[in-house]
C-alpha cells in the first residue's frame, strides 16, 4: 500500500509538472490543444494518488491480479496513443509544409516573370 509520505511526494511532483505545463501554455510556448492531454493525465494521477485503493478495485474489476501490472499496461497504452497522435500531427504538418513550398515556388516564378515583362516593355 502507498505510504502517506509517498502520496505527498507524488502530489507535490505532479503539482509542479502541471504548473510547468500551464505556465508553458500561458507563455504560448505550448499549444493548449496539445497540452490538454498531458493535463488530463496529470489529473488522473492525482486522483489515483489520493485514492490508491481505487487502483486495486479497477484491477480486480478487469481481472488483472496485480494492480502494478495494470498501471504499467495503462501507461504503455497511453504512450502508444500519444506517439500515434504525434504521427498524425506530423502527417498534417508535412502536408502543410509541402503545399506552402509549392506555393512559394510558383509565386516566385510568377513574380520574376512579371518583372521581366515589365522590364521588356520599358525597353
Amino acid at each position: 500500500m502507498m505510504s502517506r509520505k509517498l502520496q505527498i511526494f507524488l502530489l507535490i511532483g505532479i503539482a509542479l509538472v502541471l504548473l510547468y505545463i500551464i505556465n508553458m501554455v500561458r507563455k504560448k510556448r505550448l499549444d493548449l490543444r496539445y497540452a490538454l492531454g498531458w493535463i488530463l493525465i496529470g489529473l488522473v494521477i492525482v486522483v489515483l494518488t489520493i485514492f490508491p485503493r481505487s487502483l486495486n478495485r479497477i484491477a480486480f474489476f478487469l481481472g488483472i491480479t496485480s494492480p502494478v501490472n495494470m498501471l504499467f499496461f495503462f501507461g504503455f497504452c497511453l504512450v502508444v496513443g500519444v506517439i500515434f497522435s504525434l504521427t498524425v500531427a506530423l502527417s498534417h504538418m508535412s502536408d502543410k509544409v509541402k503545399k506552402m513550398a509549392q506555393e512559394i515556388a510558383i509565386m516566385r516564378k510568377d513574380m520574376y516573370d512579371q518583372l521581366n515583362e515589365q522590364r521588356k516593355s520599358r525597353e
Binding site: 509549392q102 512559394i104 515556388a105 516566385r108 516564378k109
Partner: peptide, 20 residues
C-alpha cells in the same frame, strides 16, 4: 523553372508542376 525552397521528393516536385 520553379525553384522549390525545400526538398519535397519526386511526388511533391511533380505536384508543384501540376499546381502551376
Amino acid at each position: 523553372y520553379l525553384n522549390l525552397p525545400v526538398n519535397l521528393g519526386i511526388g511533391g516536385a511533380v505536384q508543384t508542376g501540376y499546381r502551376y
